[in-house]
């Protein structure tokens, strides 16, 4: 446990020693801020049309902050992380291999799994810090409106699970190469594929479509964003994280045999 923590702390520190953490957090803040602004202003414009709507249909328009602001925000959030996570994970193993520090880790009394969990946690903390930035915006919503907090918790839980999947596959792809650029672009390609795979479901046979939409990382985030914690989705994410870490362990182990 102590080894995991030591490595996690080292990873987190090195993000903040290099420009990566600042770039990731900065880029994220700008893009998320843009989405927040545009979604919120659309919502506000609709509230202005409330009176007109009443006159035309005789009933108040159904306006809900959770459904109309938070849900689309969370959906957009998952797309932003899809772009930013490769920047977080690409260096995790590739850099150590390139600079030779892998030799230090592999000749220290640390098991492969401790090393992998440590790295995963370190990256996860940075990802969580990134999500933490969004809390500021959500607090603004609470200040001027009264959204329901429960779906929010489910939404954030979903984001953390989704981020875990991204990170564990990023970690895997970083462990197969010593070139950060290769690791980063492979990771990005795989994420993109996992994202768009459910578009297939719209124009292919039902079985195929069902399978595709089940495999897609982002379809499972929809329920979480609505505030529904479905066991099926949680199991999906946890097993994807587990699979990613398992394959990473195999890949790290193979370094010893292939050298």
């Amino acid at each position: 446990m102590r080894n995991i923590w030591t490595i996690a702390r080292k990873e987190l520190n090195s993000y903040f020693r290099s420009p990566i953490a600042y770039i990731v957090l900065g880029v994220f803040a700008v893009i998320f801020g843009f989405f927040f602004y545009s979604i919120l202003s659309m919502f506000i414009r609709q509230t202005f049309m409330q009176a007109q709507y009443m006159q035309m249909y005789g009933a108040p328009m159904h306006l809900n902050v959770n459904e109309m602001v938070i849900r689309p925000l969370l959906m957009n959030l998952s797309v932003i992380s899809l772009f930013l996570v490769p920047m977080i994970t690409m260096r995790l193993f590739a850099e150590e291999k390139k600079t030779g520090t892998m030799e230090l880790l592999m000749t220290s009394p640390v098991t492969d799994l401790q090393m992998i969990f440590g790295k995963f946690l370190g990256a996860f903390f940075l990802y969580a810090a990134m999500l933490g930035l969004t809390v500021l915006y959500v607090l603004l919503l609470f200040r001027y409106g009264n959204p329901d907090w429960r779906p929010l918790v489910a939404g954030y839980l979903g984001q953390l699970l989704l981020g875990g999947c991204f990170l564990s596959f990023g970690l895997l792809l970083s462990s197969i190469t010593r070139n950060q650029l290769v690791a980063g672009s492979l990771t990005f390609t795989v994420f993109l594929l996992l994202w768009v795979i459910d578009w297939v479901s719209e124009f292919s046979g039902t079985r195929m479509g069902e399978l595709a939409s089940y495999l897609s990382l982002t379809t499972h985030i929809e329920n979480f964003s609505k505030g529904v914690i479905d066991l099926k989705d949680a199991v999906y994410y946890l097993s994807v994280i587990g699979l990613g870490l398992f394959l990473t362990a195999r890949s790290v182990e193979s370094v010893r045999w292939r050298a």
């Binding site: 080894n3 520090t101 230090l104």
Partner: peptide, 25 residues
């Protein structure tokens, strides 16, 4: 073990490097 190229994290300070190595070992 001291490999041919010393396995050091170039962005750390020397004392941080030693502390990390100590903890991990």
């Amino acid at each position: 073990y001291l490999p041919e190229t010393p396995p050091l994290y170039t962005d750390m300070r020397v004392d941080e490097m030693l502390a990390f190595a100590g903890r991990i070992k």
